[in-house]
Computed example of a mutant assay.
Amino acid sequence: MSDLLGELFSFEGLGELLAVPFVQAALLACAVLGLIAGVLAPLIVSRGMSFAVHGTAELSFTGGAAALLAGIGVQYGAVAGAIVASVVFGVLGLRQRERDAVIGVVLAFGLGLGVLLLSLYDGRASNKFGLLYGSPVAVDTADVTVLGVVTVLVAATLAVLYRPLLFASTDPDVALARGVPVRALSIVFAVLVGLTTALVVPIVGAILVLTVMITPGAAAARVTANPLLATVLAVAFAETALLGGIVLSLAPGQPVSGYVALIAFLIYVACRAIGSRRRRPVAA
């Protein structure tokens, strides 16, 4: 690991790489994505939707594979697949006892269909593997446009519904008794998660979506119970993992997803250690 870091920071052309337009576009896309994913992550963790995010990623992968085969923008197919998955999960999987079964069925179907569609694609292999492992440096103008539109939509919805969403996430029974539309909010939140997941897939790949959508929220939950502070920390963790992963991957030219996952995991381990230390009883 030390040799790898030494190779990176001794690489004289790193500054030149950071000045390349497509690298800058990737950094901008990841910065925006880290903001939205970080805001959603604590809510996802508190609502117990980690498995749902994984299932949504598989349907987003399927939609991207279908778009790749049809010769249209992968990002459009990924968004369409994620929306379908989120609606299915929101409508059919609202009951806790049904949720895992519904997600498991849809996840298996999406993954199998996506693999089949990729096998029918005769184009570049990098396009195929990009859906699985991510390729942030392949972000183009169309991707940034879709990212911007979806980000504005998600941010605007969260600005209006954040308080009732937080209430419904932390104590759904009391929220329902107080007249909060828990069912409708569950569907809306599932769609927001689906849209954000669709943006994550082309960058870090369907396999490591949980790294961005779950780990920052899980790490923040280990060190604070304050919702606002947890959100701020989750955003900081997501930004660190995404932007740091890109920078670390530039010099050695390795897939960025591994670096993003490594940074996020180290953050989680550190937060878990801090949380355990705080909860340790003080000897009299």
Rank of each mutant, 00 (worst) to 15 (best):
R95D: 12
V152F: 13
V139Q: 01
V115D: 05
R124P: 08
V88S: 12
F109Y: 10
R99A: 12
V160I: 08
G130D: 03
L165H: 11
T141M: 05
Q96N: 08
L153N: 03
T151N: 07
Y162E: 12
L107P: 01
V152Y: 10
K128P: 00
N127V: 00
P136W: 01
L94M: 14
V91K: 12
T170R: 03
S119V: 01
L94V: 13
D100P: 06
A142W: 04
V87F: 05
T151R: 05
T151Y: 07
R124E: 15
D140N: 13
T157N: 00
G148T: 07
S119T: 12
E98I: 08
E98R: 15
V115P: 02
P136M: 00
V144F: 13
A155C: 04
L132C: 00
T145L: 14
F167R: 15
G123W: 01
V102C: 11
L153K: 02
R97G: 09
V105R: 03
R163G: 07
D140I: 02
G93K: 12
D100G: 04
V139I: 14
D122M: 01
V152G: 09
A155L: 13
L116N: 07
Y133F: 15
A101Q: 09
F129V: 07
G114S: 02
F89A: 07
F89W: 03
A138M: 02
G104I: 01
N127F: 07
L158M: 10
Y133T: 04
L161G: 07
G93V: 13
L120I: 02
A155W: 05
L147A: 12
L131S: 03
A156C: 06
Y162H: 15
A168W: 10
S169I: 02
Y162W: 15
L116Q: 09
L165R: 07
R99Y: 04
N127E: 15
T141Y: 08
F89Y: 14
I103S: 08
G93P: 10
Y133I: 03
A101T: 13
G112C: 07
Y121T: 05
A159R: 11
L113P: 00
L147K: 06
A101P: 00
L117V: 06
F167V: 11
L92P: 04
G123P: 00
L113F: 13
Y162D: 10
D140K: 06
V106A: 15
A138W: 02
D143R: 03
F129D: 10
L113V: 11
A125D: 11
V87S: 00
V137T: 14
T141F: 07
L111G: 00
L118M: 14
G148C: 05
L158S: 08
R124Y: 04
L94P: 00
L117Q: 13
R124A: 15
L111F: 14
L161C: 10
G130V: 04
L166V: 10
I103R: 09
L117T: 06
L107V: 01
T141W: 05
L94W: 12
V152C: 10
G104Q: 05
T151G: 15
A168Q: 11
V102M: 12
L158N: 03
S135N: 14
L147N: 06
D171I: 06
L131F: 06
E98N: 13
T170V: 13
G148P: 04
L166E: 15
V91F: 14
A142M: 06
L161P: 04
